[in-house]
């Protein structure tokens, strides 16, 4: 009973916060949130996920080959596997709430429904920001928005990585995929900095790199979709990259091998992120309703918007950095 009251109270407070809305919304810490899953469940889920992707359970499958597996197939058209996501969700929630103690600002700027493009800075040698943005909107947005984040091609050259990212809701970044998602009224998260963003060294942290050739702006104009600038703070400190090795990386099909304080010196353990405090801010939507579809071909206009969007995100980052 008291718990119910507590949640009601929380809801009420949230509603007040929400009613202020928009830019006035305060930075809201989420680290007090309880995670439903126990540590054993989280580790169990991870182990199950690893076993599933390595396909190492075939010996046990052999024994029960003739039994009917009744778990439903729940896979969307881009390969998001709800069953698989549930296995690793506990771990990512632990990272989000307890490890990174993420604070959120301006989540009401993301509309409750309809297609939307969230454009964010990209950072951290191992990109965790996509899944964190997804989790923020899934868990903290009032209407629990299920967005897809677009990732670079090179992930799909690698074994395991592409499959894993696909199953937890990533989509290969290309115009066809983005337009298909937007046509279906889905939200997408885009990192126009691409590899330039995640491969920054620690000394260059929080300097937003070039925004490609303005593909995001053209996508928004063509499809009449608002862009929501977003800033993610903290990922740079999670993986402070001192050097990057490019030569040997080619052998493994990677764009670079990061060298941090812990990696590769501590082996795979060094791949664990450092527990920095994360902040995610969603800015006010940029709308392109007044433009015509043909304006997408106007390179001067597109690069103007592109540069101003980059500036907006850089400002948001600077403000957040000053506030912490």
């Amino acid at each position: 009973m008291s718990e119910e009251l507590k949640t009601n109270e929380e809801k009420f407070i949230n509603e007040i916060i929400a009613s202020i809305g928009g830019i006035g919304e305060e930075l809201r810490d989420t680290s007090h949130r309880l995670i439903k899953k126990s540590p054993a469940d989280i580790l169990g889920g991870l182990a199950k996920a690893a076993r599933d992707i390595l396909t190492l359970d075939y010996f046990s499958r052999d024994k029960r080959r003739n039994e009917i597996d009744v778990e439903p197939v729940n896979i969307d058209e881009f390969g998001f596997n709800a069953r698989y996501f549930e296995m690793v969700r506990g771990f990512y929630e632990f990272l989000f709430y307890k490890y990174f103690r993420t604070a959120i600002k301006g989540i009401k700027n993301v509309p409750d429904s309809g297609s939307v493009i969230i454009v964010s800075n990209h950072s951290g040698a191992l990109p965790l920001d996509g899944i964190m943005l997804r989790l923020a909107l899934l868990n903290e947005h009032p209407s629990s928005r299920d967005i897809r984040f677009l990732i670079e091609d090179y992930i799909y050259h690698l074994p395991f990585a592409g499959t894993f990212m696909n199953r937890i809701g990533a989509v290969r970044a290309c115009r066809e995929n983005a337009e298909r998602l937007l046509r279906k009224g889905k939200g997408i998260a885009v990192f126009p900095e691409g590899i330039q963003g995640i491969s920054k060294l620690y000394k260059d942290r929080y300097k937003v790199q070039r925004f490609g050739r303005g593909g995001v702006i053209r996508l928004a104009i063509r499809n009449r979709v608002p862009i929501i600038p977003a800033a993610v703070i903290g990922a740079e400190e999670s993986y402070p990259m001192l050097f990057k090795i490019k030569r040997f990386a080619m052998m493994f099909g990677l764009p670079y091998i990061p060298v941090t304080y812990t990696f590769p010196f501590l082996g795979p353990l060094g791949l664990l992120p450092l527990p920095s405090k994360w902040m995610i801010q969603f800015g006010e939507p940029v709308r392109f309703d007044k433009l015509k579809r043909e304006d997408a071909e106007d390179t001067a206009l597109v690069s103007g918007y592109n540069e101003s969007l980059r500036g907006t995100i850089q400002n948001m980052i600077n403000e957040l950095l000053a506030s912490r």
Partner: peptide, 9 residues
């Protein structure tokens, strides 16, 4: 190919 879009036209 790894750089195919998910749905080819």
């Amino acid at each position: 190919y790894p750089d195919n879009p998910n749905y080819l036209t």
